[in-house]
Structures are given as structure tokens and as C-alpha cells.
Design a binder for these strands. Sequence first.
DNA 1: ATAAAAATATGATATATGTCATATAAATTC
DNA 2: GAATTTATATGACATATATCATATTTTTAT
Lengths: 226, 226
Amino acid sequence: MSKCEQCIVREFSSLKALNKDELVKLAGCKTSRIIRKGEVIFEEGENVNGIFCIKDGVCKLTKLSPNGKDHIVKLVSKGELLGQRSMISDEPVNLSAVALEDMEVCFIPKTEVMGFFDKNNQFSMNVMKTICGDLKEADSHTVNMAQKTVKERLAETLLHLHDTFGKNEDDSLKIQLSRDELASMIGTATESCIRLLSDFNKLGLIKLVGKKITITDISKLKKISE
Amino acid sequence: MSKCEQCIVREFSSLKALNKDELVKLAGCKTSRIIRKGEVIFEEGENVNGIFCIKDGVCKLTKLSPNGKDHIVKLVSKGELLGQRSMISDEPVNLSAVALEDMEVCFIPKTEVMGFFDKNNQFSMNVMKTICGDLKEADSHTVNMAQKTVKERLAETLLHLHDTFGKNEDDSLKIQLSRDELASMIGTATESCIRLLSDFNKLGLIKLVGKKITITDISKLKKISE
DNA sequence: ATAAAAATATGATATATGTCATATAAATTC
DNA sequence: GAATTTATATGACATATATCATATTTTTAT
């Protein structure tokens, strides 16, 4: 069992507030897991009873709509925590988590986290601020979905992927989503998504090579995203 | 200055965790305000520096979209608190609050609330649970906006208004929204909203008398909302 | 009470987006 | 490495929704 004290990603999450003793205690009760691309970490409605700390990799948080389509609510990556809302609400998770790449995640049981929560004020404050940030973002998403066109949402999403995950040496977006996944992030049909990508390509805003997307004109994309 | 101890609505919010001493202290620093229908409580981007406790009335929380349209993110009524997220994030508010009816609200300065927050565990836990509930709801809204049709969203919203605010003696919805406001809740053009209401009316799902809306077939509406 | 303004309603039309069909390209399996 | 499956791409068409125009009703102001 690796030590949490020496884990770098801890510094990126609420867990950075924990002191040495707490980290030792944490290391003693956490369990580590390798999750392959496409595997499910947890499913909507499940009782998770703890939180996951992402040591490496990226996953999507999805919610099933009554029309049978999955909607990607959020992408979560290295250093972030999963399942905090559900733990605090004391409810099953409302979203599913599925790995977009091979991942390494640690599971921390609820009892342990709640202990830190009670005793370490900075930790609980960090968690709260994270959740408040998520709420602000979620409201903003709702408005985007309700008021923007698919084209605007696609432009915005491409820029968001660029800003959040960066690019490879060849300038293509580091995060690789299928057209289907991209469509389910912006809330449209896969074909519509493909068509608009193709339009952006013809307009010289992006370059498509196989599955790779390269943004070639950020400012015009920004203009389109409004 | 009225006493918080005797205020009934306190029981409906996170404030119910406060003890007698805390309530006396609260009563000493809170300020009460009457807000007329249509008046703004706070505006997106403003520094609010405290929270509002709604003693009476209902308001809408809106966010301006880049297309110039306001989107109604949430309706908030008697007994609920406003501005919690902003206070915890230590950021300007991300939503505007506008009264839908005449209201009575109390303002509690941030310093005071944060004091309770630090010392009263139950209070901070209540606030967190509220915000977690908001987040769950917001994610669900996002998915609805992204995946459901306008018709489905209208049906769902009517049912939600019915469940949340109840009905008058004549069975019409207690909460009165203009067609414009209803449209800005479901994220559509005012004309589309009016047209669909008219369709629902012709199908016998609702009854329209002036501004009043009466739901006459809940189960069919539920079916439409999916 | 009357005039003016705003809200509601409906028609006509344009546009965005979804759906279904089919072709091609890429990835996976045997 | 060929065969099969899956993902991407594009066309044709249907449908949902937005926009603009105009009529009617309701509310507000004088």
C-alpha cells in the first residue's frame, strides 16, 4: 500500500488540508484500484459509501435521460475527488462515472472522510468550496443548454477541452472523445455533431485528422461560442 | 426589530440548527426589508456580503445568457436562504434575484453567518446539504435542457410548479408566471411556450383562463414529460 | 373611463436540428 | 491479413422550434 503522504495528486484536491497524522491514517484505510478505459467506477443510483481520489486518468460523469440517451455532465481528471456530493447528502450517487482512459483511483471509506470533515475545518471548507464551484458551473451549463444553439455549444466545448486538458505536441486536443461522446456533452445527435465539426473544419476553425481534433482559430471559435 | 426566535420560517431553513443564544445574536444584526413585486434583491456580479432569509414571498433566480435573454434557473420561496453559495465561495453572486410577488426578506451579514458556520456543526452541515441538493437538481436540469424537447420541458415545469407551490381554491396554480417567464424557465421562445400551452389546452391537459393555468390531467402531463 | 402600453394569441415562414439511409474509413477480432 | 464490427461522414428528408407579422385581450397610466 503506497503512502498518501508521498502522493502528489493529493495537493490538487481538498485533501491538501490534511496533516501528517491524518495522511498516515488515510493511507491505512484507503484502497487503490486500476480501472481500464471504458470501465465503470460507479453507476447512477448506487450506494458508494466513500469518495474516490483520482490518481491518474480522466473519467466522464454521465446521467441517463428518460429518452434513453446518456448525457455527459462533466469530465473529471487527475487530482480531483468523486462522490463528495453523494456522501454529504447521504444519498446514492446521481451520476455514473466511466473511465475515458486507463485510470488509477483510490477509494476512501465514508467513515474516514467524515472524520476529517468533523475535525479538520480547512478540509471541510475545501470540500464545500469545491461543491459550490460545481454548483456555479452547473447553473451556467443549464443556461448554456437552454439558451445556446448546438453550434455555439460545440464551439464552447472545444475551447473548454482545450483549456482544461491542453494539447499534444502536434497541437491536437489531448483529451480524445468519440464524436458520440462529444455529442452527448453538448446535447445533440451524433450526426449533427459530426456535421458541425465538418463545417468548422471547412471554415478553417479546426483541423480533423482521424479522431484527432486540432483547434486552428481560437478567436473565431470564441466568437462563435458567443 | 422583530425577534428571530419567534420567526416561524426559520424552522424551514438551515437556521433551524441555531440555539437560543445564537438566535438572539442573529436578531441583533439582521435587517429586514420589504421588496415589491418586480424589484431586484441582488444582481449577477454583485458582492452581496451575506445571506437573505425569505420570510415571505417568492423570487426568481436568473442568469443572463450571452444572447441577451434571461434564463430562470430556480424559484425560491418562503423559508429558503439566498446567497449561500456566493458566501462560501467568497465570490460575487452568479445569479440575479427578482421578486415575483411582494416579499419580506431579512439580510444577515456574512461575518455573522460565518460565525455560526464555524461554531455550530449542525448549521454548517445543513447549509452543505442544501447546496448539495441544489447541485443534484442543477445537474438534473442541465440534462433535461440538453435532452428533452420543449414540449416535455413545459409539461415537466407545469407539474413542478404544481408540486412546489400548490393550487388555489379554484385549482389553478398558485404561482403566477407570465408566459415570458415560463418560457425563460423552460428555455424557449415566448411564442413557442404560448403555442404549446394552447395545444395542451386543446388536448384537455390544462385549462387557461386569463393568466391562470389549471392542470386538469396530471397523469397525461406526466406521460408527456416522460 | 379612455388612451396607451404591455401581454397573450395565432398565422406564415425560415431555420436548426433530428432521423433514417447509405457510404467510407478505422478499429477489432479471428 | 482478411473479415467483421464499429466509428465517422454525408445526403435526403422530416420535424421542432425560432422569428416576424399581426390581431386580440389585458393591464396600466392619465
